[in-house]
Design a protein around this nucleic acid. Structure first.
Length: 576
RNA sequence: GCGCCCGUAGCUCAGUCGGAUAGAGCAUCGGAUUCCUAAUCCGGGGGCCGCAGGUUCGAAUCCUGCCGGGCGCGCCA
């Protein structure tokens, strides 16, 4: 139990007592009562807003109520004193031993420090990447992949069961173009001169080995056959080959999904029909005619057609949405609706990570999930903004026509997995981001990747140096630590609440910002030793003090490792 | 025209369920290197939190309107 959770429980008990004494009315909503670090460290170690939150429902003024709570809190174990400040904050000063206890708690918990049971074992399905299986991954997919993966780690750390899922869009028309492109490369592999790749097909070289493999596997039986004879086969083969490429690209980032759900399988299993029947039964699907888009000139070939429409307007969308096309085939939305229903069968909560260019379709899919699960399944769509690729401040040119986009593999190869992952988590997902090749590999303070890793490397380094002096960690007398050193424990102890808050908000970037702050405090502590040699962590002539300081450094190192693990970034032993 | 996202220091961005004097990095100015890795640290200057109302003990945060920027708006995927 963290120190914040302990005090939340203490305050709860005090409020129970005040209720039973009749000081405050029973049954007041306490959900907004919080124990937090005070904004300014000089105010104390912990602060609570309890009096301010409860004053109004209790019909008291906040300071009056805080005067009732503060003395009781002052008598709680580990508390050195309390005072009431500002509009009614209760500031708590802890016995310094409380922080020494927390330091031991970090060491005891090790890899588990910061884990929580907040998720209560609830199953969360996080769907991310889901890039179309028509080629290798490019940088446009990268941020969503990292954010989704870090979010999955974060939720797992916070006590959820997590399913990492990839939706393979293998049912749409673009797969026909992929299949034709692969067929062309297959004929090429059989010795035919195919000339220029026609407009509309995929020109990339990555299909060359696919054609060769198909030629070896299938011989020339399909070379001159009409398309309807080979299309289905080439679709399946090409998609499988593309998914192999994509899985390999994801592995470069350390990303591995549990489930690859196929859109074609969803259709083949009749899920869209089942969803349609269900929703028609509840009058949420009807046959109707869409209006032409407003505001802009309608398309030239606009014709009103009757289609089966889902009543997404009942759930806040601005238009009802077709689930089938006029040719009878399912729309993307029709399949997606059925697919989300399928996911909801095995999960208590669904999270989708999407590119911001799909923002316009969030409402309809939220409407669909709300309708199909009758509001029982929590559902969040995280939109991830575009990343602008730069090199020394100049935009990196991307040419789609030649098929030469910047691939994920190239970037990982150039700057490394850890740099890519960390950098992608240094912004909120919904903020736009620049990714400058020159800057992200720069080894300096402006680069949080190196800054945090350097802190960890220093911690490991001082251990190696201490061992060389014959000082091993363990059995430290923590009473030797001074106030400045214990202040670092105070920041370290916030890690569990940062994890919980980040997990609740579905915002893994908060871990990155926290680690940067923690590293900064550690570097500052380290540099005390440059001015005053007695303040160095390693004092060869003073083994007891060195051990105590190593214990502190170890705890910081542990938290950096735990935080980096959530982000999927390695903690390094030394800087190269 | 409608919808979504965004607007915080010169720049890039944090800001916890509404909480105390709004923070960090860069840039700028001034300091620290016989050092456990200076890939670091310490200090100074720099703010109508887009604007105007509202809710409240309290608003950068919630609500309404406006201004500015981005994205989207066919049965595509």
């Amino acid at each position: 139990m963290t120190i914040y959770a302990q005090f939340a429980a203490h305050i709860d008990a005090i409020l129970d007592r005040l209720e039973s004494e009749g000081t405050i009315p029973a049954g007041i909503d306490r959900r907004n009562v919080a124990v937090e670090p005070p904004r300014d460290a000089s105010h104390g170690d912990l602060a609570t807003n309890a009096a301010m939150v409860l004053a109004k429902p209790a019909g008291m003024n906040p300071r009056e109520l805080s005067m009732k709570i503060a003395p009781l809190l002052a008598r709680t174990g580990g508390v050195a004193g309390t005072d009431v400040a500002g509009p009614g904050f209760i500031n708590i000063r802890l016995d310094p031993d409380a922080w020494r206890d927390e330091l031991r708690a970090i060491a005891d918990a090790g890899d588990a420090y910061g884990r929580s049971d907040m998720g209560a074992g609830k199953t969360v399905n996080v769907e991310y990447v889901s890039a179309n299986p028509t080629g290798p991954m490019h940088m446009g997919h990268c941020r969503g992949a990292v954010v989704g993966d870090a979010l999955a780690n974060l939720l797992e750390y916070a006590g959820h069961k997590v399913i990492r899922e990839y939706y393979v869009n293998d049912a749409g028309g673009q797969v026909d173009f992929l299949a034709r492109s692969a067929h062309l490369r297959y004929r090429e592999a059989l010795g035919e001169d195919i000339g220029e790749i026609p407009e509309g097909l995929y020109p990339g070289d990555y299909l060359v080995p696919v054609g060769q493999a198909l030629a070896e596997k299938l011989g020339d039986a399909h070379a001159d056959a009409p398309e309807e004879e080979w299309l289905a086969l080439f679709r399946a083969e090409a998609v499988a080959a593309m998914m192999d490429l994509i899985r390999a690209d994801l592995a470069l980032l350390g990303i591995h999904h549990d489930v690859f759900a196929s859109e074609a399988d969803v259709v083949a299993a009749g899920k869209p029909e089942a969803a349609e029947a269900e929703l028609r039964g509840r009058d949420l699907i009807y046959d109707g005619v869409l209006e032409a888009p407003k505001g802009k000139a309608p398309p030239e070939d606009w014709e009103p057609v009757e289609l089966p429409l889902f009543r997404s307007t009942k759930f806040g969308d601005d238009q009802d949405r077709p689930i089938r096309k006029s040719n009878g085939a399912w729309t993307y939305f029709g399949n997606d609706l059925a697919y989300h229903f399928q996911k909801a069968e095995t999960a208590d909560m669904l999270i989708d990570i999407w590119g911001a260019d799909h923002a316009g379709t969030v409402k309809r899919i939220k409407a669909a999930v709300a309708a199909l699960t009758e509001g029982k399944t929590e559902f969040d769509v995280k939109l991830v903004q575009m990343v602008r690729l730069l090199r020394d401040g100049e935009p990196v040119k991307m040419s789609k026509r030649s098929g030469s986009f910047v691939t994920l593999a190239e970037v990982v190869q150039e700057v490394g997995k850890d740099v890519v992952r960390f950098t992608m988590l240094t912004r909120k997902a919904d903020a736009q981001m620049d990714f400058d090749f020159a800057k992200v590999v720069e080894a300096s303070k402006d680069n949080p990747v190196f800054y945090v890793q350097y802190a960890h490397a220093r911690i490991r380094s001082v251990h190696r140096k201490a061992a060389a002096e014959g000082i091993e960690p363990g059995g430290a007398d923590l009473s030797l630590l001074d106030g400045e050193e214990l202040a670092l424990v105070r920041l370290a102890a916030q890690f569990p609440r940062i994890v919980e808050a980040a997990a609740k908000a579905h915002e893994p970037h908060r871990i990155a910002f926290y680690l940067n702050d923690l590293a900064a405090e550690f570097h500052a502590l380290w540099n005390r030793g440059n001015d005053v040699p007695e303040k160095r962590l390693l004092l060869p002539d003073n083994a007891p003090l060195t051990k105590a300081r190593l214990a502190l450094a170890d705890a910081i190192g542990q938290i950096i490792r735990n935080g980096l693990a959530i982000m999927g970034v390695e903690a390094v032993e030394e800087m190269e």
